[in-house]
């Protein structure tokens, strides 16, 4: 069953935190906390979860620390 093995549900590679929006990062953070809270995460993954969580928190902070943005202006183009 090589195909079955290939399509076996493995842990999906997590996206690089630096590519995540604040929304996505904090949502993942919440889910990690919830999973640790409910003891769903095996012990050996606990520390990995914590590392991931710290990375997500770092990402959120980085977004918050972004420089002040200029007010942009767009004119609506032709209507669709």
């Amino acid at each position: 069953m090589p195909r079955a093995t290939a399509s076996a549900p493995g842990p999906e590679p997590l996206p690089d935190p630096s590519t995540l929006s604040f929304e996505a990062a904090s949502a993942e953070l919440e889910s990690i906390i919830a999973r640790v809270e409910e003891g769903e995460i095996p012990l050996e993954e606990c520390l990995a979860a914590r590392r991931r969580g710290e990375a997500l928190i770092g990402r959120c902070r980085a977004i918050l620390e972004q420089a002040e943005r200029e007010l942009e202006r767009v004119e609506p183009d032709g209507d669709a």
């Binding site: 904090s26 953070l29 003891g39 914590r50 969580g53 710290e54």
Partner: peptide, 13 residues
Amino acid sequence: MASRLRALVRARV
């Protein structure tokens, strides 16, 4: 959230 996560993991361990 950060301290909660840390505390949870610590408690778990």
